[in-house]
Amino acid sequence: MILPTFELHQPSSLAELRAICTGLETTGESYDFMAGGTDVLPNYKNRINARSHVISLSKLEGCNTIAVDRIGALASLTDIARHPELGRHYPGLVEAAGQVSSPPLRNMGTLGGNLLLDTRCYYLNQSEFWRASKGYCMKADGDVCLVVPQKEICYATYSGDLAPVLLTLDATLHFHDIHGQDEAAERSVPIREFYALDGIQRFHKAPGELLTAISIPENARQLRTGYHKLRVRDTIEYPVMGVAMALSSKAGKIERLELAVTGAEAIPIHYGDLGFTGRQIDDGCADELRAALCSRVQTYRNVPFPPSYRKAMAGEFAGDLLMKLGD
């Protein structure tokens, strides 16, 4: 399948990237950044919101180093999944990275790409022919949502694996703003404020802002982390429910609990402790947590597995993680 025609830019430095973006913005041309391309290119093949310019980040120097407190946005998912120090402190993060798609796509895909992954929906991730025959949806070329017929909001499902884990760790995203004063200028946004509940807008990121790194606060190291992912096969597929948990407990009591969910709504949702801080970790507590999360999660009939099952799994995963991570 051929891609739609576009002009390709391959900056090797931030300075070059700034010049390219500024130039395009001056002439009013639209562009996409592309890191691994494993999300952008299938969408482009399907003619979903393809733009006339693509700025490939493949030649960009830097932005791929991994340290426990800061990970470059261009770090590959394989490198994250195999990073021993990350694995020691944040096993949930490396588990999540190791479960993204399949091995070759993890070699190509990046942290940044996974965090900024476009939302997914049966009515969206189809060819131009398919979407035309069905009637276009509001996210691409149409004006109404085909999952929940209305015109206000897109219900496509956020399908990244890493965001929920980073939400539980209270990570911060760092952006380079091409309009900023200089190359060192950086905008930092707590990940918990980054995502915006709408399948089209998805997050608070201005055009021209390039995600360069994420950082994880040092106090997150005291948390035990875990991630459970639901998909039909054990590989290739996106999460249709994913639950991340970070927990600290003492003498069997919850000291701090962070829960986040992916594969449900249009963005990953951080649920915090759901009021369970201070509770004794036992079967009863796990049951209540199951029920509490299950009742909060919203799922729609737009990805594999029925919504009710996916909701139920959110609860099951949370209960299981609690019992596994509790001391």
Partner: peptide
């Protein structure tokens, strides 16, 4: 299907078993 449309005309959603399953 969704009405007349094949819902999963691709190898992501038409799932043949991988080596791991």
């Amino acid at each position: 299907y969704n009405k007349a449309n094949v819902l999963n005309p691709n190898f992501l959603d038409y799932r043949t078993l991988s080596p791991t399953e």
